[in-house]
Design a protein around this nucleic acid. Sequence first.
DNA 1: TGCGTCGCGCAAGATTATTGCGCACATCCG
DNA 2: CGGATGTGCGCAATAATCTTGCGCGACGCA
Lengths: 161, 161
Amino acid sequence: MAGIPLDRTDLRMLDVLQREGRITNAELAARVNLSPSPCLRRLQRLEAAGVIAGYAAQVDPQAVGLGLQAFVRVQLTQHDSATIETFVQRVNAWDEVVDCYALTGDMDYLLHVVVADLDHFSRFLLDKLLNASGVADVNSSFVLRTVKHAGALPLAQLAGA
Amino acid sequence: MAGIPLDRTDLRMLDVLQREGRITNAELAARVNLSPSPCLRRLQRLEAAGVIAGYAAQVDPQAVGLGLQAFVRVQLTQHDSATIETFVQRVNAWDEVVDCYALTGDMDYLLHVVVADLDHFSRFLLDKLLNASGVADVNSSFVLRTVKHAGALPLAQLAGA
DNA sequence: TGCGTCGCGCAAGATTATTGCGCACATCCG
DNA sequence: CGGATGTGCGCAATAATCTTGCGCGACGCA
């Protein structure tokens, strides 16, 4: 996992693509002061190296009827590999869980949950989460407002080769 | 904010684009059993309506030297609009904060922070967050492992017109 | 100075985007 | 029941873009 070296141009490309992922290669080239050919070759290199893991359309949750989001902190009863493995597998199978992180602190996991409404959340909580073995404690907080959703890493602060 | 009606084809398009945002219109059309023309027209409609808010390249944080992530829960001293307004503005100005949500529960805000290392985080915490007025309490948890990062809404479970 | 490497720009063919147009089907009203 | 209307599809043609091979110049090094 050494990671490939990234120069200033690479970082500028990434910075642009984080915000406008469907921009044409021609315009991306113009933004970073390059002709289309080397720009495309750099892009393919970044994709092949996994620096760019993929591209995603950002869908408005409200528009598709998913109007409620919550963050659920979960504590497991035990921390042996079997318990963890089982929990992780279930989390990956649950569609409502968009993100899941293992954290330091008194709670083991943080789940970002997206659902249609309170009823939907209730079913998720009762039928899935609390039904899962190994779950000792659960603490739910609902999203009142999305204050910031950059969807972009702070590349500006990086020096780059 | 009624939102435009979405049929089964629209949802399938969104489902594909959430995972492969840079797919060509021709291939997207093939995936949803449509010819390129109506597929593009649907896409433009979805973009214009804001159902698709944008497109983003998913950059690997490790690859760009941002190897440490944290979730910081913040409680404000007061909840008057002036205190909130000030805090929100600062959050939006801080590059390290990728996401920020106002939550129910005993902590008012959840910040998703991406930094290079502990030193970087320390500077963020001491120089920025704890220096901000109106901040009563702060609780940081570091990301040990990203268990799941779908980056996609669960559209499969939606019926759609 | 001479050699090798690296990355750029140019150019041409293949692919894709984009628009106008006509047609089929469903709905609604007379 | 018949005709009008609207909606959305596919086709076709042009414009734009992608994609690859190639030659050139800059740089590092012995």
